[in-house]
Design a protein around this nucleic acid. Structure first.
Lengths: 335, 335
DNA sequence: TATCCTTACGGAATTCGTAAGCATG
DNA sequence: CATGCTTACGAATTCCGTAAGGATA
């Protein structure tokens, strides 16, 4: 049994049991992958995969149990590497953040400015996608931290921490009639074509649900993944937009107006930071979580790991209040 | 990074950092051990061990963190093997039980008779020693289950389950004066030389503590690790013995008498079964725990594992009430 | 001096990748 | 017939153990 074999099995499970794909992804030959997996099966004395002819078509019962354990072994091996890196150069390394467009564009910028000032030797990589993509990246171990909305709470292998609450607002062209009403209702808004987030973004369903609950079925003219697209079409007069508050506060708002009191029309949303349970992260990653969610007690954060984490790293951070970031101040500075 | 390297590091930590010893224990050359460890340190970029000249004298800070993670990796790798064995031949294999003499001699026999009838293809190996030895065997992964007294509760990496309570009794030669009193007190007993368990057996301290608390300091003439030795010397008239109840009920009692009401003189003791947290055991091992502690809800038992265990094995066992063993009946059948 | 770790080096075992074979859809 | 797994086999790499070197207590 060796790590290579375990990695191959893991990759096969994550890649539709396509060994050719696995070989490409891991930069090796597919014959090697095939052989190593067969060797492992022979050593363990079990079939991990169900084969039909020469094709892998599923996991055996033993295989699916094995896959779970293999996942943990590889995960711990990665923890070992991260742990070592932590001691080699405490504040140097790479941090991969998976985030939705909204978070990446309007929430992360001020925080990351602060972060990169505190950790100049950390390369930050942002990967953007749907909430589902964010959780997948975390589960696959390809991202260290994930930033999205409540959707992450539903993934049981992730530890999520709330950062802050925010609202959706209704936006219209500056000269639009709705901008002049003191407090338009949902019904007033539903009279116009609507432009908002796609349904698979949690924001999307929050907005639509609010109209549903009020017994309204607005004309959902266009849905998009990001606020910039929505704003563009609103500017063009294609309809009334509903976007996250931050997109107007922290982003360009020229030619647009926020409909008065419109933030009260929808339930609060919440930005969450998530990490894979059992992950031993680099010190600077924990620091970023602290910046995003300074109110989370440190012990809760480290509790995401079933067994004791790198306590020094965290303890030393606790002694550096200069690292704390008041994102609320930053977010609303321009208001 | 490979498992061999991790095993070497682990073994070094468990063997006083003596690589020669590690090599002997793992049947390899010490030069190989040395090289592999150095390779691992090079790959991780950290020193795991503190060296003075050419001697390993300690773990670095990074090393002690690494050792913890390595422990988990190897542990999960063993889980993977056990899991596979479980599917190859569900009720066939080997079960190593570490137990104190008392448990091995008077508690286990009736249970194991029952067990080996239910699982005829399981080889059972009993390893006997002090409570400390029992916990060490579990922590080192050399035993699957441990049976001892409360002493196991103090080891945080072990999950312990209470089996049943029992008492100590005072034993004397048949014709002894104490045997004729209706209910001798501790003071009555302390008038004679005492023979009981060694202090490092939890039974030992329970007995001595009871006298201490009563303000008595009896003449502790002899201490031994097992009841048979104690009984022998009591027969020879060397003193009054204090042994576990089971040693009289389930073991030979010829020539000896239990002092009336003497079980009330000492606090209750309790037999515990323990397993290493996070261990994925074979189905038959869980079955033995069930026989020993049938009142423990199955979910609590499997909860000893941080992540989902082999649920089929356990579920199928739950459907076989024939496997349940009433040890209380067995233990007291002769009464 | 006895113990014990490290390095060097040659042989053994493993792993890897190309190429060919063969089953599936 | 395009895709995809397996097997065979030679090349490359890695692993292992003997032996010598050097450091400590």
């Amino acid at each position: 049994m060796n790590f290579q074999q375990l990695r191959y099995v893991r990759a096969a499970v994550h890649n539709d049991l396509n060994l050719t794909e696995v070989a490409n992804q891991l930069f090796t030959s597919q014959s090697g992958v095939s052989k190593q997996i067969r060797d492992l099966e022979a050593e363990l004395g079990i079939d991990i995969f169900v084969r039909r002819g020469k094709r892998l078509v599923g996991l055996t019962k033993a295989g699916s149990h094995a896959a779970e354990v293999i996942e943990r072994i590889i995960h711990e091996a990665e923890n070992l590497k991260r742990l070592s890196a932590q001691f080699v150069a405490e504040d140097k390394g790479r941090l991969t953040i998976a985030a939705t467009h909204n978070q990446a564009s309007y929430v992360l910028p001020p925080v990351l400015v602060h972060f990169s000032r505190a950790f100049p030797d950390v390369e930050v990589e942002i990967r953007q996608g749907t909430p589902r993509y964010v959780s997948d990246m975390l589960l696959r171990g390809e991202a260290d931290l994930g930033i999205a909305t409540e959707a992450l709470d539903e993934v049981s292998d992730l530890a999520t921490f709330p950062c802050f609450d925010w609202d959706h607002v209704v936006i219209v062209p500056e000269d639009h009639a709705l901008a002049r009403l003191p407090a338009p209702s949902l019904a007033d808004i539903a009279a116009y074509p609507l432009i908002t987030y796609s349904r698979d973004f949690s924001g999307g369903s929050v907005v639509v649900d609010a109209f549903d609950k009020a017994g309204l079925s607005p004309d959902l003219r266009l849905t998009a993944m990001d606020a910039d697209v929505i704003k563009t079409y609103v500017r063009l007069g294609m309809g009334v937009g509903v976007v996250a508050q931050m997109a107007m506060v922290n982003g360009p708002a020229d030619g647009l107006a926020v409909v008065p009191q419109s933030s009260r029309l929808f339930p609060h949303s919440s930005t969450k930071v998530a990490l894979l349970k059992g992950s031993l992260l680099r010190n600077f990653a924990y620091s970023l979580v602290e910046m995003l969610a300074p109110h989370i007690p440190r012990k809760v954060l480290t509790g995401a790991r079933p067994l004791p984490p790198l306590t020094e790293g965290l303890a030393s951070f606790a002694q550096r209040p200069d690292l704390h970031f008041n994102w609320n101040a930053a977010l609303h500075a321009e208001e």
